[in-house]
Design a protein around this nucleic acid. Structure first.
Lengths: 143, 143
DNA sequence: CGGCAGGTGGGGAAAAGTGGGGGAAAGTGG
DNA sequence: CCACTTTCCCCCACTTTTCCCCACCTGCCG
């Protein structure tokens, strides 16, 4: 269960520390890839396998499915933590996420999003102002 | 079953004592997150799991679902009590709830709300003066 | 009036985060 | 094919923060 936001530095070698609370769940390996809103996604390996199975089952002729495949797979990178609990973010991914020397890791229960700090703050503001919009959606889910 | 209001100090390290009566039900762990109306919510772990299962099952490609996920999980924090029955309130949550050095814990049967004392008193006043307003709503619920 | 339970504060050990150096592997040019 | 350069990555060490535990205080109950 990944929860909470954690801000960490990306050092000169492109390494990103995984918050200690997230490490156990990623010990079996992880995949880092691009997400949908110019952020990066970190999936535990089991979650990733499940995701790829579903995406690969999509039609080859559907334009959206092709784009989704490219987004997910083209820049994906399997990573393991070093003994200090860090992973290496390949340059293509750092560029894809607009990341420089700081990153915000956001735990979303089953996976993690990685944001450039200023872009994450924008998302937070949108959440604060649009919070009421989600009332209906949550009611649908029975929450 | 959480009942009653309890006022406690938040010490300099951001720790909040859980009322002794509430502890047994939270022994298996809890999740603290932001609620509505600028208060915090404390859920026993089983209650929380039930709440989140449906959200985590939502699509990754749906924009609204992504924002809902962020709203719920980004400011949540899993906590356990120390041997004195206290939990640590992360700074982001203290800010989110407008909490300084005092907090009011309000038991609401299945979960707990945490309020800044002055804001809680406002709620109490509104309850006292607007009590009759709830008649219609309660009739809807068959109470 | 004494004991006990709940609440509060502070000190110390342990872990988390961060930076840097050295060695191996891969890539490039002669 | 060899040598040089560059990149990658593993490990060590320092600093800061976290969190765990001990001890005190206060109020209630016997």
């Amino acid at each position: 269960m990944f929860l909470g936001t954690h801000e960490h530095t990306i050092d000169e070698k492109g390494r990103l520390a995984i918050p200690a609370r997230f490490r156990a769940e990623l010990a079996g390996g992880m995949v880092v890839t691009r997400g949908f809103d110019r952020c990066l996604l970190i999936f535990p390996l089991p979650f990733w396998s499940d995701l790829t199975r579903r995406v690969s089952a999509l039609s080859l002729t559907d334009e959206d499915a092709r784009m989704l495949r490219r987004l997910l797979f083209a820049n994906a990178s399997e990573q393991e933590m070093d003994r200090q609990g860090r992973i290496l973010l390949p340059q293509s991914l750092r560029e894809g996420g607009g990341l420089a020397d700081q990153a915000v890791l956001v735990g979303l229960d089953t996976f993690i999003e990685v944001w450039a700090p200023d872009r994450w703050r924008e998302v937070e503001e949108r959440l604060a102002s649009q919070g009421p919009r989600f009332d209906e959606q949550m009611r649908k889910l029975g929450i």
